[in-house]
Write a protein that binds this DNA or RNA. Structure first.
Lengths: 226, 226
DNA sequence: CCCAATGTTAAGAAAGTGTTAAATTAGTTA
DNA sequence: TAACTAATTTAACACTTTCTTAACATTGGG
């Protein structure tokens, strides 16, 4: 099991490593909110232990960005100090799944983590993305329109997910570039080419087109039968 | 669905009946640990709701006897009071599958129960992995395709299990590496070699191949006869 | 009509993958 | 412990696919 710890207190970090590593858990650690978030973005953790008070970006903000911008549902367990009980509520509202008050028992922490992970894997009914007759399963990469099976390149799948997930939201080129490539987008306007390839597959073989250009604004996907 | 309630508080019992019976659940009830245990021994319940504090035999003991002496794996959901947080842990160690803190929301209780039941019925079938004519038993390492017996190296069996368990999900190289090696994967791209060896055994001797590469995305296993 | 934004295309660059074999490591047995 | 065997990792190479770049074409709003 992969655990991400976002915590600035060295003692706590040391304790966690000491307890969990021998049990066969695999741990990663970030010392502040920003780097924690970027680690979390890799999306290969089963659960995140998140301190409420953090340098650069506090736990609540981290959690909100995790759910909002990154659209990740990795379960989050929030660590709070005893004297900030009110924050518990905020913690939940921010999208955390559980909290534990410092100082905490490691055994209890472990059982909470297990419960979170189990619950998460249960609700793994997972999001198939559907828009009209277009269906896309991000897990199997199975993609069909009107029952016809379609194939894309990696960036194509990414692009499609992004556009589909919040359809019919309009995404600016800039936004799309940052979602696709993060901090270091290509020098050229490569996105244009990718949109083009995507259309070749998604729209070209069919009567109506789903990928819409909004001049000067960006792109979006729509259900043409509405 | 058959639910056994082991609880001494009449109000709680009444609440449960009031909520669950109209939903079509069938409830039985015991007022103390000993009689609860003897009812549970009949082994025709899908799930047991067990209070921690009980006359004659407390919840932990009940649970331990249930698992230990009666050898039953009926899922148990433990009810605990808010001020006995330490007991949560004990609850898990005793073999309970989940816990919920009083006072609890009936809706949440219901969804927890459903999750427990589903998981239990899932894990029953667990042992053998089958995809088309490929059969693999992770316990005995018995592996056959079209009736032909096959052999792998340790990592090969692991890899196969992973790919098979969630077929036809596509696993990225990164994901596979982390599942196979956890935190410290080999420096080189050793996974490539392992996939190759796996194919030598699973696919090479047969007409159709089951291990599919999705360029840039990862690998998955499919049933070629679909 | 003009210009910036967008669509289209193709070629070279970069990244990913299959394959093989040797080197290294781990595990056994004498 | 040494010698042997099995398993894993590393490294090299060939090959394929995907991505980026850049040039040119087209479109649509001001």
């Amino acid at each position: 099991m992969q655990i991400l710890i976002i915590e600035d207190n060295s003692d706590i970090i040391a304790n966690l490593y000491e307890y969990f590593e021998p049990l066969g858990y695999s741990l990663d650690c970030a010392r502040d909110g920003v780097s924690g978030l970027s680690l979390a973005a890799e999306d290969n953790y089963d659960v995140i232990i998140l301190d409420l008070m953090l340098p650069r970006l506090d736990g609540i903000k981290v959690c909100q960005k995790l759910r909002g911008e990154l659209k990740l549902s990795t379960p989050v367990l929030m660590l709070t100090a005893r004297d900030t009980i009110d924050d518990k509520v905020t913690g939940f509202e921010s999208g955390a799944d559980d909290y534990i008050v410092k100082p905490f028992s490691l055994i209890e922490l472990e059982s909470r983590l297990k419960a979170l992970v189990r619950r998460a894997s249960d609700s793994h009914v997972e999001s198939k993305l559907v828009l009209g007759s277009l269906e896309f399963d991000p897990l199997t990469l199975n993609l069909t329109r009107e029952g016809v099976s379609l194939k894309l390149k990696p960036i194509g799948y990414n692009l499609l997910s992004i556009l589909l997930k919040d359809s019919p939201q309009v995404f600016s080129r800039k936004k799309l570039e940052s979602l696709l490539w993060g901090d270091l987008p290509p020098d050229s306007d490569s996105l244009r080419t990718h949109i083009h390839s995507l259309r070749q597959v998604i729209d070209k073989p069919f009567k109506k087109s789903m990928i819409k250009t909004v001049q000067g604004m960006g792109y979006c996907m729509v259900n043409p039968d509405e």
